[in-house]
C-alpha cells in the first residue's frame, strides 16, 4: 500500500488565516494615500491594473505585504483579495515577509558571477554573520542573492532595499556601505559614465548628479558559485 494520505499534502499549504502582523490601529490608508491610489486607477481602463502601483505604495508604508495589507489594497481598489494575492506573490520585489531595514540585493547573474559576486556575497555573509536569505538578529540587514539587476558593466554590484545601486564593489566599499547604513545613511544615486563620454567630454555629462562611477572590471573572482 502506498503511504499517500490525503490529509498530508506533499507541499505545505500556506496558512490560510495567519496572525495579523500589522497592529489593527495602524492598518489603514490616509486620505492622501487613498487619493494617490485613486490616481493610479485613473491611469488604466480597469481598477485591477492599479494593483502593482498600489502594492508599491503599501510596501513603502508598511515595509512588507502580509495578508492583511493585501486585503487593505484589495478594498482600496475594489478588486477581490485573491487577485491581489496572486499579483503580490508573483513578483519578487514585493516582500511577503518582514525584511531587515536594509535589504542588500547582491546581483549574482552571469556577468556579476564572472566578476566576483560570490566573493562579495561571502564577504557580506561573514561580516554580518548571516546567510543569503536571512536577516540579522537586530533586524537591520537582510542579504539576498538576486538575478540580473541590469548593471553588468559595473559588476559586482548590489541594490539597497529596492533603491539605489552600489557599483564596482570592493571590500572597502562594502565596509563603508555597512557603516553608513548602520548610521542610516543611504548611498546616493550614482550615475555611471559612458567610456565614450570620458573620452569626448571628460566624463560626467549630467550637471544634476554629484556622484559618478565608471565602468570597470575587478580581478577574476576567487569563488565562482
Amino acid at each position: 500500500m502506498s503511504e499517500f494520505d490525503i490529509k498530508k499534502p506533499v507541499v505545505a499549504l500556506p496558512d490560510m488565516d495567519p496572525e495579523p502582523q500589522i497592529p489593527e490601529e495602524d492598518l489603514f490608508f490616509t486620505e492622501e494615500e487613498l487619493e494617490r491610489i485613486e490616481g493610479f486607477t485613473e491611469k488604466y481602463p480597469t481598477n485591477r491594473s492599479a494593483v502593482m502601483p498600489a502594492l508599491w505604495l503599501a510596501q513603502e508604508k508598511f515595509g512588507f505585504l502580509p495578508p492583511e495589507v493585501m486585503k487593505l489594497v484589495a478594498e482600496a481598489i475594489d478588486i477581490p483579495y485573491a487577485q491581489v494575492y496572486g499579483a503580490a506573490t508573483f513578483y519578487t520585489q514585493y516582500y511577503k515577509k518582514q525584511m531587515g531595514t536594509y535589504v542588500l540585493d547582491v546581483c549574482c547573474s552571469f556577468s556579476c558571477q564572472a566578476c566576483g559576486s560570490y566573493d562579495v556575497l561571502d564577504y557580506l555573509e561573514e561580516k554580518l554573520g548571516i546567510h543569503a536569505g536571512e536577516t540579522t538578529e537586530d533586524g537591520r540587514f537582510t542579504i539576498q542573492e538576486v538575478e540580473c539587476l541590469g548593471s553588468c558593466g559595473t559588476a559586482p554590484m548590489l541594490q539597497v532595499t529596492n533603491g539605489p545601486y552600489v557599483h564596482n564593489l570592493t571590500e572597502e566599499k562594502l565596509d563603508q556601505l555597512i557603516d553608513d547604513l548602520r548610521n542610516d545613511k543611504m548611498p546616493p544615486f550614482t550615475s555611471v559614465t559612458m567610456p565614450q563620454d570620458e573620452d569626448e567630454m571628460g566624463g560626467n555629462r549630467r550637471s544634476d548628479v554629484e556622484h559618478t562611477d565608471t565602468y570597470r572590471t575587478p580581478p577574476a573572482p576567487e569563488r565562482w558559485i
Partner: peptide, 14 residues
C-alpha cells in the same frame, strides 16, 4: 552595445 566581463574597459558604447 552593453559589454561586460573580463575586459579592460567594459561599458555601454554606441
Amino acid at each position: 552595445y552593453g559589454i561586460s566581463g573580463h575586459l579592460n574597459r567594459p561599458g555601454v558604447y554606441e
